[in-house]
Design a protein around this nucleic acid. Structure first.
Lengths: 256, 256
DNA sequence: CGTCATGTTGAACTCTCTCAACTTATGTGG
DNA sequence: CCACATAAGTTGAGAGAGTTCAACATGACG
C-alpha cells in the first residue's frame, strides 16, 4: 500500500461517460426561508424567523443535477453553502488515484467550515441537490451584525468536529463490518432527524463511495453487507435501500 | 478484527505501577497573560492585549505531572482549557480495550470544542503540562461580551476540523510508512510554530501512543521508523528524538 | 437486445497483525 | 553499588485478514 504503481482505479475516475447531469448547475435567486424544510437543522436556525430576511437578501440558490460538481478541491473559496435538498459527497483525491470520501452532506449541513483560502475537498452531488449560497463576504457581515449566527456556526462546527472524530475511531480501530455497521447507524440517525423512518436507510451513494469513506475496497464493503445480512442484522433487495432489521444487533456489530 | 476476544492490551493499561506523577494535579490562580508564551497561538489572541484582564479574571491554572489525567471520557464538561506548556493526548477507549489517540495537544491548543455535555475523550498529560482553565459559564459570558473571542474560537475550531479531516485521509488510504511520515511532518510543523527547529521532532509520547494514533500496532510503527531510517529519510539514536534528514523525501514518503 | 455501470462472489496473494525473543534504559531494593 | 524487575523499543517468523484479480449477475439505457 506504499504508492501503488498502477492506480487500479476503476471506479474513482470522473466517468468519461458523463453521469446524468454532469455539469448540470443552475443558479437562481433565493426562494425564501419560509418554506425551507431544513431551517430547523441549519445554522440559519440561530436567527429568529423575523430576521431571516437578512439571510434571504444575501443568499442565492444553486440546483445541481446528480453527478454535478459544486466546488473543486484547490479552487478559491468564495462562497459558503447550506444544503437544502439532496445528498452530496466531500471528496479528496490523491495524485496516484487513491480517493477519500470525507463525508456525505445532507439537508441542513453547512459547507464552509475551514480557515483555508481554498477548498480542501471537491463537493459532488450524489442526487439532484439544492443549496443556499452565501458569498463569504456577506456571511462575514451577517456574523458581525448577528452574533447569534456566529454562535450557531461555532456550535455546528463543534458538532461536525465531534462527528469527524468519531470517524477516526472507525477508521483507526474497527474492522470492516464494524465500520459498515457504524456507518449505517450514523446515516439512519441523520435521515431520521430529517423525516426518515428509524428502520430504513437510503444509500444514494455507490459502494465505491462507501468504500472510499470507510477506507475499504468495494469488494470488502460488499462482503460486509452480505455478512450483516446473513447474520440477520440487516436486509435488502435493492442494495440502495437497507432494512435495519435488528437495530440492537447492529449497534453491537458497530462495537456499541 | 471483529471484537477481539482477549484484549491483547499490554501497553494501554493505565500502568498499575503508577507513572511519575499519577494524579499529580495542582490548581492555582492564574499567573497572568503577559508572560504567556502561547498567547499568539491560542484563542486568547483574538482579544487585544489590553483586554486580557477579562480573561485573567475568569481563568485559573492547572499543572499536571506526566501521566496525570485532566478529564475523563464521559465526565460532565464544566471547564474548557488552553494548553500553555507540555504535551497531552486525547484518548478514547473501547470496552474491549482497543484504544484511539485522537490527537496530541500542544501549547496554544484549545480543549473544549464540542457540543456534547460530557467529555468525548480522556485527556492525559504526556509530559508535565500547564493549562489555563475557564469555567464554561465564564467562557460563555466572555464570548457574549467579546464577539471577537467567539470569532477566534470559530476560526480555531475550523482549523482543527481541517486537521482532523487530514487525518481521515491518513487512516483511510495511507500505508504505515506514509502515515508515520505524515505524522512526523505534522508534528514537526507544529513544533516549529512553537519555537522548534525545522529539522528535529521531539516525540514525548510512546510508540504505543503513536500506534493508537495512526491505527497501527507498535511493531508496525517501529518497523516503519526503521524503514524510513534505512531509506535515509530520518535518523535517530534516541527513539524519542528524530532527525528529519531529508525533508523532501519525507514529504514524498507521506504521499505529497 | 447489446452495452455499460453497478454489485456480488470466489480464489490467490500480500501485508499487517500476532506471538515471541531479545536489547536497552530506568528505578528499586538488598 | 550492583542485581533484579519493569517498561520501552526493536526485530523475526508464522498466521490471518483484507486486497487484488477475475468472473458472473443484474438493471438501466439507447
Amino acid at each position: 500500500m506504499q504508492a501503488k504503481p498502477p492506480p487500479s482505479v476503476t471506479h474513482h475516475v470522473p466517468s468519461p461517460a458523463a453521469r446524468p447531469g454532469q455539469g448540470g448547475t443552475r443558479r437562481l435567486p433565493h426562494a425564501g426561508c419560509d418554506g425551507c424544510l431544513s431551517r430547523h437543522l441549519a445554522v440559519c436556525a440561530a436567527l429568529p424567523a423575523a430576521e431571516t430576511h437578512a439571510l434571504e437578501a444575501a443568499a442565492g440558490e444553486v440546483m445541481l443535477a446528480a453527478g454535478a460538481t459544486l466546488a473543486h478541491e484547490g479552487a478559491a473559496r468564495r462562497e459558503v453553502y447550506t444544503v437544502t435538498r439532496g445528498m452530496l459527497r466531500r471528496v479528496r483525491l490523491l495524485p496516484d488515484g487513491r480517493r477519500l470520501v470525507a463525508g456525505f452532506l445532507m439537508p441542513g449541513d453547512f459547507i464552509g467550515f475551514s480557515g483555508a483560502p481554498a477548498y480542501r475537498h471537491t463537493i459532488e452531488a450524489i442526487t439532484e441537490s439544492v443549496l443556499c449560497v452565501f458569498p463569504m463576504q456577506s456571511m462575514r457581515r451577517l456574523c458581525e451584525r448577528y452574533p447569534e449566527l456566529e454562535s450557531g456556526m461555532l456550535a455546528q462546527a463543534c458538532a461536525e468536529l465531534d462527528a469527524t472524530r468519531a470517524s477516526l475511531m472507525l477508521l483507526a480501530r474497527m474492522g470492516p463490518s464494524e465500520r459498515l455497521a457504524g456507518f449505517l447507524i450514523d446515516l439512519a440517525e441523520r435521515q431520521r432527524l430529517r423525516g426518515g423512518t428509524a428502520h430504513h436507510v437510503d444509500l444514494p451513494m455507490t459502494r465505491a463511495d462507501i468504500a472510499d469513506h470507510l477506507g475499504l475496497t468495494i469488494e470488502t464493503v460488499s462482503r460486509s453487507f452480505t455478512r450483516l445480512r446473513q447474520a440477520g442484522t440487516i436486509a435488502f433487495d435493492d442494495p440502495r435501500r437497507i432494512d435495519l432489521v435488528d437495530l440492537p444487533a447492529l449497534r453491537a456489530a458497530a462495537g456499541l
